[in-house]
């Protein structure tokens, strides 16, 4: 480490700077990479109670009749969302492995066609890992014509591996108005009404 000192920057300053700038760029990118990393991490661990946003395979598990889990449903409207939105039942007791369908009822009381998206969240967070939805309205945007109502099905089963200590699982849906951000195919579904 006893290089000759120099009054001028030495030739390899450039190399250090390049490497440092590369690190800076890399860390800036890493900041954004944290977004998918976080999502992957959540899917893997149930961190923060997110559920997977795509259909799970149909249950092939043995139904575990030795225990039941209470599944509660909570429906909420985001601010400015005028729909009526509720589950047909407040809660249901299911055996792990057993497939159930629950309908969520929505009506659009306004005078205009609207598109909504339901965002799920599960408490406790770790239970999200064991909640398998084979069919859910929450995977897609939901169009609803003015004054219309609909029953939106959600089919699910609990993985029999769900830990013993989970007796209650709460699934909440928050309904957001996505009319302004609707995808074209969803809008097309509503077109006949116009």
């Amino acid at each position: 480490m006893s290089e000759a000192p120099q009054t001028e920057p030495r030739p390899d300053n450039g190399r250090i700077i390049r490497r440092l700038l590369l690190t800076v760029a890399g860390m800036f990118a890493f900041g954004f990479a944290l977004v998918p990393l976080y999502e992957a991490f959540c899917d893997l661990t149930g961190f923060n109670g997110r559920t997977r946003n795509e259909a799970a395979a149909v249950s092939t598990h043995q139904v575990d009749t030795s225990r039941t889990v209470n599944v509660q449903f909570i429906t909420r409207n985001a601010q400015g969302m005028p729909w009526d939105f509720k589950a047909e039942m407040n809660s249901v007791r299911v055996h792990p492995g057993e497939t159930r369908v629950v309908n969520f009822l929505a009506s659009n009381p306004t005078g205009s066609n609207m598109v909504a998206q339901a965002i799920p969240s599960v408490a406790p967070g770790e239970a999200a890992l064991y909640l398998n939805k084979t069919e859910c309205f929450c995977f897609n945007q939901q169009p609803l014509q003015a004054g219309a109502d609909t029953a939106m099905p959600m089919q699910f089963y609990l993985d029999p591996d769900i830990p013993e200590h989970i007796h209650t699982l709460t699934l909440s849906y928050t309904l957001y108005d996505m009319t302004a951000n609707a995808t074209p195919d969803v809008l097309a579904q509503m077109a006949p009404a116009n």
């Binding site: 601010q79 969302m81 005028p82 957001y176």
Partner: peptide, 15 residues
Amino acid sequence: IDIVVNGKNGTAMQS
């Protein structure tokens, strides 16, 4: 009436 009843999304104006 609509804004008081339903609020306005993305603002402090709630339903």
